[in-house]
Nucleic acid binder design. Sequence first.
RNA 1: GCCUCUGUAGCAUAGCGGCUAAUGCACUCGACUUGUAAUCGAGAGAUCGAGGGUUCAAUUCCCUCCAGAGGCUCCA
Length: 641
Amino acid sequence: MTKVKITFPDGSVSEFDKGVSAFDVAMSISEGLARNSVAAMVNGKAVDISTTLNTDCELKILTFKDEEGKDIFWHSASHLMTQAILRLFKGQNIGLGVGVAVTDGFYQDYDLEEPLRPDDLVKIEEEMKKIVKEKLKITQKDIPKAEALEFYKNDPYKIELANAIPEDVVSMYSQGEYDNLCKGPHVPNTGMIKAFKLTKIAGAYWRGDSKNKQLQRIYGVAFPDKKELKEYVRLREEAEKRDHNKLGRKLDLFTTSEVIGKGLPLLCPKGATIKRILRRFIEDEEYKRGYIPTETPVMAKSDLYKMSGHYDHYKDSMFVFESGGEEFCLRPMTCPHQFMIYKSKMRSYRDLPLRYAEVADLFRNEQSGELHGLIRVRQFTLADAHIICRPDQLENEFKRVVELIQYLMSVLGLTGYWYRFSKCSTDGSGKYIDNPEAWANSQKIMKKIVDELDIEYVEADNEAAFYGPKLDVQMKNVYGKEDTLFTVQIDFALPERFDMTYEGEDGKKHRPMVIHRASIGCLERTMALLIEQYAGKFPLWLSPVQVKILPIADRHAEYCEKIKKQMFEQGIRVELDSRSESIKKKVREAQLEYVNYILVVGDSESENGTVNVRTRDNEVHGEKKVDKFISEVCAEIMERR
RNA sequence: GCCUCUGUAGCAUAGCGGCUAAUGCACUCGACUUGUAAUCGAGAGAUCGAGGGUUCAAUUCCCUCCAGAGGCUCCA
């Protein structure tokens, strides 16, 4: 019998009989591995575990612990869900959209006669459990495409998917009575999917295009055992406790009002304090780095945005209104305003770079469904700047911006972010300024720059600004939804549209380059991610209430007022809780507000000129002279820089 | 904008085609003056999101609008 050489991930090589299955190879390693194997990687390609090996190859047995294994497991779970739905809604004409694994589970889209209701999920889960118990074998076969098209004659979605396959032969997977067009691979048996949960119902456009029909999407997660599912649910609950939209309201950072309108949050004193800290911090930091301030109007005549191109490319997202026979817009961006300052006089090559910074209030008429807490709003404050520079300065200026951003991330203590190089797309959607040559050029320049920076980034098509490519700093919120925190953009279009020039050494007019950038981002959004990052427990320098003084009895009030004043004078953000409540209760409440330091003041403290210090985490620091406490707090606040 | 869901006091929940709409926390007043997770007593607070319809009767059922949640699309 002929042998095949199989190379394992650790580099070891073993010989097996030709035609051995990946499963048998797994068995030869250990029964446990075979039992847990969801699929295999043969020469880097994921295949079913039942695949036979007929030539020498590299083999990796995939379990749920491997990223690829997880995807396959979840993809199989989506099939399990579909089988359950087909059983439950037998007789209905059900269109099957896409079903795939995502980073946090799986989903499958359906076109159903009746919309699904939340309690349907329970029924579907029950049916899924039955199918798991049946331990149906999952098998694959290739069939002629014509046969598949006949099979799906009532399902326009599957037909579209099948027609997109270039080959004449297509792959079908079967488990019990359920056959599905799918390239796989899949777990070998429905019995493997022991623990799962359907998490949400959502609408989703067919093929991700809002012109298409909206299908119903069911999201779920699945695990090989119940313990992992339980742990997952626990982690989800923990994460949701950090949700800025709930926690921020609970901590009195912000609120909303029906009569003010959607996407227009109100910052309460504590939230406003945090915003002010961020604002003052970034204004000072940028000033140190050579930025110069501007203050420009929050609105302008439409003509300005017609010049910039916003009116053509962005009008749907702008608040446009008429007054005195003229049309105005609330500004969605600061750029054209600052460009008018640039154009207000002649500029020499010696003047450049000009780094115009403005912490600017911006207005964007976002679609109602996109609004979310402080992350996506209709009015927000952006730490905006436009660096107008000579082409030879572009690279250095760009790098300085990235350096600033890196500095900010470390000072804010934000983790889990990544860089995205956002490019335009060539789909001719009209979203972008039509100048292929300039796009190619500026994307080339940007790629060169980001490659030289010591950063890792992902490339993304169709994510650019309408006037140029971007380097975005991306973060996820507690629900795993991705948003841009900071952004740096190279603009090839607007300097020309505004006919911005400078006089060069040669006495001729030249075209400057522009970098658009948001250093500390939109303050509201940054604040939201800070709330989630710290679960509301802000570091001292960002904390809206750094110290809370709690008198034990009324007779200590006078002393408390005195030390409060002393701390105020040192710039410490301090509150005094003089309610006649038990000291226990007051301490507990201060801890729930995540106040950094809690000072208890009784007879001993008032007589000795001390305070009794503890933290929100209930670390007891004990009695301390007031002056010493103040200087320690001030030192801790300064440490940040 | 689209899909699904939700809207009862500041917050969290209960409730029902018909009684004075219930409970906890928070709030106010009084007592207590307290030292590490809930001191005692009293009180106030709700046009049950808004408007319309069905009904003898609607907070409850239906419609429209407003607002909120999670997705999709979009985006800082």
